[in-house]
Measured scan of single mutants.
Amino acid sequence: MAASAHGSVWGPLRLGIPGLCCRRPPLGLYARMRRLPGPEVSGRSVAAASGPGAWGTDHYCLELLRKRDYEGYLCSLLLPAESRSSVFALRAFNVELAQVKDSVSEKTIGLMRMQFWKKTVEDIYCDNPPHQPVAIELWKAVKRHNLTKRWLMKIVDEREKNLDDKAYRNIKELENYAENTQSSLLYLTLEILGIKDLHADHAASHIGKAQGIVTCLRATPYHGSRRKVFLPMDICMLHGVSQEDFLRRNQDKNVRDVIYDIASQAHLHLKHARSFHKTVPVKAFPAFLQTVSLEDFLKKIQRVDFDIFHPSLQQKNTLLPLYLYIQSWRKTY
Rank of each mutant, 00 (worst) to 15 (best):
K67M: 11
I109A: 14
Q99I: 09
Y177A: 08
I262S: 03
G110K: 08
S293I: 10
A48E: 07
G212Y: 01
Y222L: 10
V292D: 01
A273P: 02
G53R: 14
N180S: 10
F230D: 09
S105W: 14
R169M: 13
T291I: 08
G240I: 02
K331E: 11
V87C: 14
P286M: 08
A47H: 15
I171M: 13
N254F: 14
V229C: 13
Q115C: 09
I262T: 09
A98Y: 05
Q327S: 09
L198R: 04
V255M: 09
K154L: 05
L186G: 04
D123P: 00
N94F: 05
F246S: 03
L294M: 15
S50M: 09
A287C: 07
I171P: 01
A167T: 12
S83R: 14
D157C: 14
I326V: 11
E137L: 04
A48Y: 14
R169P: 14
L268N: 08
R66D: 02
P311E: 08
V229W: 04
L186S: 04
I326C: 13
H239W: 03
P321V: 05
C126F: 14
S312F: 09
K166G: 14
Y323W: 14
D245F: 06
V104M: 14
A54I: 13
L78A: 11
K283A: 15
K196Q: 10
E173T: 07
I207E: 00
E96H: 08
D245V: 07
K228A: 15
C236I: 12
L324T: 08
T181I: 10
I326E: 03
Q327M: 07
K271S: 15
Q290R: 04
E295A: 09
D69H: 06
A273C: 04
K209W: 01
L174K: 01
A81R: 15
S105E: 14
G110F: 05
S264F: 06
H239G: 02
Q314D: 10
K149V: 04
I155A: 07
E63F: 06
S105Y: 13
V87N: 14
P221A: 11
A219L: 05
Q251E: 15
E122K: 12
S83N: 14
I308H: 00
D257T: 10
T279L: 15
A287D: 02
L231Y: 01
G56R: 15
R159N: 04
K278C: 12
D307L: 00
L174E: 01
F285L: 13
D261P: 03
S183L: 03
P221I: 10
R330N: 10
T57D: 12
V121E: 04
W55L: 13
C216E: 10
E158M: 10
L174D: 02
H223I: 07
H267D: 10
V95G: 07
Q327N: 10
P311W: 08
D123I: 02
N128L: 13
P232V: 01
R169L: 10
Q265N: 11
V282K: 10
A203H: 01
L320R: 03
Q327L: 08
L190W: 00
I308R: 04
A167C: 11
A135P: 07
T189R: 03
D197Y: 02
A200Q: 01
L193G: 02
L231N: 01
P232G: 00
S50D: 05
D305Q: 08
R249Y: 11
Y60N: 06
V241R: 03
I192H: 01
S242Y: 03
A89C: 04
A210M: 01
G56S: 11
L147C: 04
P286Q: 08
Y187N: 04
L198M: 09
E96Q: 11
V134T: 14
C126Q: 15
R144V: 07
D123H: 08
G110D: 06
G72R: 04
D252F: 14
C61L: 12
L270M: 11
K316W: 09
V134S: 06
H310V: 01
Q327Y: 11
H277Q: 13
M233L: 10
N317P: 12
L320M: 10
Q265V: 12
D201N: 05
S312Q: 08
E82A: 12
I326N: 06
E82H: 15
Q290Y: 10
L319Y: 08
G56V: 15
H131I: 15
N317W: 15
G56E: 15
V104G: 11
L268W: 08
F306A: 02
Q182N: 14
S312T: 10
Q132T: 13
D157N: 13
N162Y: 12
Y168T: 09
D296I: 12
T332Q: 12
S45P: 09
I326Q: 07
T318M: 13
P232C: 01
E158N: 10
L74C: 12
H199T: 13
R227Q: 11
A203F: 01
N162C: 12
P52H: 13
A287L: 05
I262W: 00
D197V: 03
L186Q: 00
K119N: 10
V258I: 09
A49Q: 14
S83V: 14
R150I: 07
A287H: 01
S86N: 06
K140E: 05
P133Y: 06
M233H: 07
V258G: 02
L324H: 06
